[in-house]
Amino acid sequence: MGTINYGGSSEPIHIEDRALAHLKVVIATKLRRNESFTLSWKHPVDEPAGRSTIWLHPSIPLRFTFDEPETPPLNVKWVEELMQSANSTGGISLVDEVLDTPAA
């Protein structure tokens, strides 16, 4: 389980490593372009039920921490889906991984 530490908050945001690796690509791209946006996610099972949203801004300190030492292979379709949501008025919504499935 990876974490995002954002701003001065002492409470880390827990996100599964694979999802966090994909989010990191999208977040870094948006912030590199000097774009602000929101990030929303459902709380993990081991935390109180609910969902959260934060406002991401290039001037606010951000740290990604991963449990796994190696970066997983990235799923381009999932990155594209996350980037599309990042470019919407609702901001990034952490959605389940988009898998390539052969046509039946």
Rank of each mutant, 00 (worst) to 15 (best):
I27H: 09
G90Q: 15
D46R: 14
S9E: 03
R63H: 12
W55H: 12
D17A: 09
V76S: 14
E70V: 09
P73M: 08
S88M: 07
G91N: 01
G50D: 13
T71V: 14
T53F: 07
L23F: 11
N34W: 04
A21N: 05
A21S: 11
R63I: 15
E81P: 06
T71R: 00
L23V: 13
I15D: 03
N5G: 07
N5L: 08
I27G: 12
S93E: 07
P44Y: 05
P69G: 00
P44V: 04
P48K: 02
E81M: 14
L39I: 06
E35M: 12
E16M: 05
D46P: 00
T3R: 06
L99W: 05
P72R: 00
E11K: 15
R51Y: 15
I13W: 01
V98D: 04
V76Y: 10
E97Q: 09
N87K: 10
Q84P: 01
T53N: 05
W55R: 09
P44W: 01
A28F: 10
T65P: 00
I92D: 02
N87C: 10
G91F: 01
E16H: 11
R51S: 15
M83L: 14
H43M: 15
I92S: 01
P72H: 02
K24T: 10
I13F: 05
R32N: 15
E16G: 09
L31M: 15
V95F: 06
N87L: 08
M1Y: 13
S88V: 02
E35H: 12
N87M: 09
N34I: 07
G8H: 14
K42E: 13
W55T: 00
V26R: 08
E16A: 12
T101A: 12
G2H: 03
E47H: 14
T53D: 01
L99T: 05
K42R: 09
V76N: 13
S88I: 03
S59I: 02
P12F: 07
A19E: 07
S85N: 10
S88E: 04
P12M: 14
P48Y: 01
D67R: 14
W41G: 03
G90S: 13
N87E: 10
G50T: 00
S93Y: 06
P44T: 03
I54V: 02
N5S: 14
S9I: 11
K30D: 06
D46Y: 15
V76I: 15
N75L: 07
P73T: 06
F37Q: 06
I4K: 00
T3P: 00
S59K: 08
